[in-house]
Nucleic acid binder design. Structure first.
Lengths: 240, 240
DNA sequence: CTATTAAGGTGATATAGGTCACTCCAACGA
DNA sequence: TCGTTGGAGTGACCTATATCACCTTAATAG
């Protein structure tokens, strides 16, 4: 269970060097962190801005220091598919570090005002040759992300929209939920339309199914940006 | 374009040590390869046999030496989702090497009589500490596989079954096709039912859509195990 | 505070693909 | 060679969700 504004950041001073916040660098000493901190260049992005574009070349690793980022793919007719929502400490762009001939496989948007640390491929090469265990950390994270994406694919292919929506709610309990007396309160970082783009249905279907779950007493909609999950257990059963 | 029986193997003696066939070991010297060859244990699997099961613990890397393997996930009600078909030189099981607390995220079946080389986590640790660049090779492969799975997820979520089927045919032209005078002849390693499980539709829909594509003159069905693609260009346009 | 725009809800309708039931065919073993 | 079995094709029907059109509510700027 994670606070909406990221817990990993809160462990450290808010203004501290961002490499400190990144799990893949966690094993490094203060001196080494300092060295990396000097390499990174900081970038600010306003809510709604794109950080990278699908199809473009890149050789940079993006590490989220503050804010939230959605990774999306678009079809030719403009239909969006959200891959995931990333928060503080998460990174992306790693594919282009190791496959230099490939282009970005997705577009990334700031969904809040966002602060990003950027490391170039050259920086990473230097860091990794000095600290080979960082490659292992990366492998750990990337292989886990692969498993998560495989689960997403399975879910999209084999499960009914209704079940997928229940699944999304349960996932977001972990990711964006805080425990309150009546259950778990999810602070959504995205709109209904974006939820639809994540679950692979239309906005209308999201409205209707959330309404249905509310009627069943499983959840309670609090404005448009919050969902109170009153009966997570039943939602999990729903998923089977 | 790849021959059905894998080209990577054919580059070397058929009976040669399997680490030679694996791209991630390609940079190693003969002496080092020999060392690894002594570590691997060979295993044989008959057509249809499961190599590993979803949900079970494992700390082994499986490298395909001969034959073909499908990686699948199943829902509680037995619906299969095929993640991909792997051939000679491909590996799987890497997630469990780096996330030791995790269980297998998929089941793997031999779809031919198959020969597998198995390396344990301990072996890999030894190899990687001696050759840090192997971690990079792994990262290269895994990040690319992640991109491919993200594409699969997008396709399942945003594209019509009909389009996904066209997409699958185009993908299989590359993977299982050989050029012939009339076009590209795909030798399918799987049944209609399995195609359906890959594309995320029912067997009936596969039958009907393949029939439709045949009527349109785009393909020609040759028995049940071959598809002659007469007009790949139009299929690609179909995908948009 | 109002005006404007973006986001969200909802009813009516159409339809693609799922489901079911059956037939046909091909592969394989005896 | 036949017979058995699993794979594949096909028609009839059904239903969940996309679509379309419209209305309502929330957010934002001036």
């Amino acid at each position: 269970m994670k606070e909406h504004s990221c817990t990993r950041c809160d462990q450290y001073s808010d203004s501290g060097p961002c490499p400190r916040k990144v799990p893949i660098f966690i094993s490094l000493s203060d001196k080494e962190i300092l060295k990396i901190t000097r390499m990174v260049s900081q970038k600010q992005f306003k809510k709604g801005q794109a950080l990278i574009h699908e199809g473009e070349k890149s050789d940079k690793l993006f590490i989220i220091n503050k804010g939230q980022v959605k990774r999306s793919k678009f079809t030719v007719n403009g239909k969006e598919q959200i891959l995931d929502i990333m928060t503080c400490g998460d990174f992306f762009g790693e594919m282009n570090l190791f496959n230099t001939e490939e282009v970005n496989n997705f577009t990334a948007y700031a969904i809040d005002d966002t602060e990003i640390c950027v490391l170039t491929k050259d920086d990473i090469d230097v860091i990794m040759s000095a600290h080979p265990d960082i490659a292992i950390k990366l492998l750990k994270e990337v292989t886990r992300r692969l498993a998560h994406t495989e689960n997403l694919a399975q879910s999209l292919a084999t499960k009914d929209p209704e079940v997928r929506i229940a699944q999304m709610i349960v996932e977001y309990c972990d990711k964006f939920g805080t425990e309150v007396k009546e259950g778990i309160l999810i602070s959504l970082p995205i709109t209904r339309e974006e939820i639809a783009s994540y679950v692979g249905v239309t906005r209308e279907t999201i409205s209707r199914k959330l309404g249905k779950f509310e009627d069943l007493g499983l959840i309670s909609l609090v404005g448009n940006k919050k969902i109170l999950v009153k009966d997570e257990r039943s939602l999990i059963e729903y998923i089977e």
